[in-house]
């Protein structure tokens, strides 16, 4: 059951990663002319349209992560401690805190994308994108070190 939930958690994280990366790229590196290249088309998306998807995907991913976190605490973290994998352990500790702080940013993030002109949505989106990337990579690496059911 935990493995199935972990897979769904990972799939949601992939979708979230795509959405927030599109949006962050479009505000940090906006396309200035009709896009012809792959990178240009990647940046030339209608960024406001991603806000609801990012909000919902972030919350769903966080909820599923919270559900399987207990199993991680029992069967994965203890092994990491025994193997003295301190950096891996610390990376996950940071992941849990960044995920929690990201949750608190969501109302302001969502609101900023409802405004026609809100310069503060650029750093909000960039920070959320960093959180999502960090959490995705750390989760992926830790699962490779010691996955559920291994």
């Amino acid at each position: 059951m935990t493995t199935a939930l972990l897979i769904v958690h990972g799939l949601l994280a992939v979708a979230l990663l795509g959405a927030i990366t599109h949006q962050a790229a479009s505000v940090l590196w906006p396309a200035t002319r009709p896009a012809g290249s792959f990178a240009g088309r990647f940046r030339a998306v209608a960024a406001p349209g991603y806000a609801n998807a990012v909000l919902i995907l972030y919350v769903l991913t966080a909820i599923l992560g919270a559900v399987i976190y207990g199993e991680y605490r029992i069967s994965v973290r203890i092994v990491l401690e025994e193997l003295h994998l301190n950096a891996a352990n610390g990376s996950f500790e940071l992941k849990e805190h960044l995920a929690a702080i990201g949750l608190g940013m969501l109302p302001a993030y969502w609101w900023s994308w409802r405004q026609p002109e809100a310069r503060w949505r650029t750093p909000l989106t960039a920070i959320l994108a960093f959180v999502v990337w960090w959490n995705f990579l750390v989760g992926h690496v830790l699962n490779n070190i010691r996955g559920f059911g291994s």
Partner: peptide, 11 residues
């Protein structure tokens, strides 16, 4: 801007 500055400091 506090909505991003304070969370960034917390991180």
């Amino acid at each position: 801007g506090l909505a991003w500055l304070v969370p960034l400091c917390a991180m």
